[in-house]
Amino acid sequence: MLTRIAVVVPAHDEEQLLPACLDALREASSRVPLPVDVLVVLDSCRDGTARIAAAAAGVRRIEVRARNVGQARAAGAAAALAGQAGTTWLACTDADSRVCPDWLAEQLRLAEAGAEVVTGVVEVDDWSEWPDATVSAYRDAYRRGVRGEQHGHVHGANLGLTGDAYRRAGGFRPVAVGEDQALVRAAVDAGLRVVGSTRVRVLTSARRDARAGGFAGYLRAL
Rank of each mutant, 00 (worst) to 15 (best):
91 A>E: 06
92 C>I: 04
93 T>M: 13
93 T>H: 12
93 T>F: 14
94 D>F: 12
95 A>T: 00
95 A>V: 00
96 D>M: 09
97 S>A: 15
98 R>H: 02
99 V>K: 09
101 P>Y: 01
101 P>R: 02
101 P>I: 03
103 W>L: 06
103 W>M: 02
103 W>A: 12
104 L>C: 05
104 L>Y: 03
104 L>T: 00
105 A>I: 00
105 A>N: 02
108 L>R: 13
109 R>G: 05
109 R>P: 00
110 L>Q: 05
111 A>I: 02
111 A>S: 13
112 E>Y: 11
112 E>K: 14
112 E>F: 13
113 A>L: 10
113 A>K: 02
114 G>D: 01
116 E>T: 06
116 E>G: 10
117 V>L: 05
117 V>K: 03
117 V>M: 04
119 T>R: 10
120 G>S: 04
122 V>R: 10
122 V>E: 14
123 E>L: 08
125 D>I: 12
126 D>E: 02
126 D>P: 01
127 W>K: 01
128 S>H: 13
129 E>S: 12
130 W>K: 09
131 P>T: 07
131 P>W: 15
132 D>N: 10
133 A>R: 13
133 A>D: 09
135 V>H: 08
138 Y>V: 07
140 D>W: 03
140 D>N: 10
141 A>H: 07
142 Y>G: 01
142 Y>C: 06
